[in-house]
């Protein structure tokens, strides 16, 4: 679908992510500079009361970002928010989804309001978010 054709209620194509692995978390720690050991050191995670390391929330949010930028040019994305609902664990299989919930048209600028969610393979919500996209109405 062309980006200008999105209507209220339309969903963007969902993005499926490979199972979360320890090496994914180690690579993200290196790339982001977030070396909080709760994401890479199982001994530290256990001392902190968890049964294992957990994924960086920002890694999950980065996957979600890609679900949006797969459809809309990044420069059209004016706001992007996430609430981290539950922990993402090793081997979780995530799916990123988004839906247009409102549209405003003003001075030939079309504003799309998206509701976003990341779920695991059991349907448990990991993250809920929103985005505001601004398109020039042709």
């Amino acid at each position: 679908m062309k980006i200008n054709n999105y209507q209220i209620g339309d969903e963007i194509p969902s993005l499926n992510i490979n199972p979360i692995s320890r090496s994914m978390l180690a690579l993200y720690a290196e790339a982001s500079g977030d070396h909080n050991p709760i994401h890479i050191d199982i001994d530290f995670a256990k001392k902190s009361g968890l049964s294992d390391v957990i994924a960086h929330g920002m890694l999950v949010m980065s996957f979600l970002a890609q679900a949006i930028t797969n459809i809309f040019p990044q420069e059209s994305i004016k706001k992007f928010d996430s609430k981290f609902i539950s922990m993402t664990n090793i081997n979780d299989i995530l799916t990123c989804e988004g839906k247009v919930i409102d549209i405003e048209l003003k001075d030939s600028i079309k504003k799309l309001f998206l509701n976003l969610v990341v779920l695991d393979e059991l349907g448990v919500k990991k993250l809920s978010g929103s985005a505001i996209i601004e398109l020039i109405e042709s």
Partner: peptide, 10 residues
Amino acid sequence: IGNILHASQE
């Protein structure tokens, strides 16, 4: 640092 979680990001 072991007692914090990321709650939200905007």
